[in-house]
Amino acid sequence: MIKFLLRYPEKVVVPLLQHIELTGLTLLISIVIASALSLLLMRSRWLSQLVVGLFSAVYAIPSMALFALLIPLFGLGEKTAVIVLVIYNQFILVRNILGGFHSVDPAVIESAYGMGMSGAQIFFKIRLPLASPVILAGIKIAAVSTIGIATIGATINSGGLGTLLFEGLQTMNMVKILWGTLLSSLLAIAANLLLAALEKKARKAVNGEG
């Protein structure tokens, strides 16, 4: 395996970097869209339940099926992969962002209004910090699942570690399969550890232990 890496470093490093780029880009877009959606939905309980329900139904569609469905619209390649991954993430992220904001004690919000904090002050100083552990938990789950599902993107030419896996399968090259498996797993574990640490820190701060 090491020999393979030394002989063809670009065959391992390039997919890894592509994978990180694909995942990072997906997460960034996902978070921006999910935040905007959540802010719009925050005021209406029934509407947010409806939208989260819809997203959960979409989340249940197998990824291969969703890729197939979107290729006629967006073609092959990275763009389609990112769109699919962003759609999947909406369920996880919107659910957790809304859940985070709803978990804030209403008495805390009432006293904040009562003492004369403005809406923006309450949002940034009270609501957001108190909701952040649940939101970070959502980002953690989204990151890990994106890293996983992104490997399947290789079937539609999105690049990434999936390329190693599928090339390896086609040519029965065990070394490629192992590198693909190892790196995608390590990437997922690393993302999980990093975000879990952030989540823990936020939770401690919220409970006044930080």
């Binding site: 004690d105 008495a107 805390v108 006293s111 009562g114 003492m115 004369g116 006044g208």
Partner: peptide, 15 residues
Amino acid sequence: RKIGYVIQQVGLFPH
């Protein structure tokens, strides 16, 4: 801001 407000559930900011 000119009126003090105290409620039963207190509502201190936990963080």
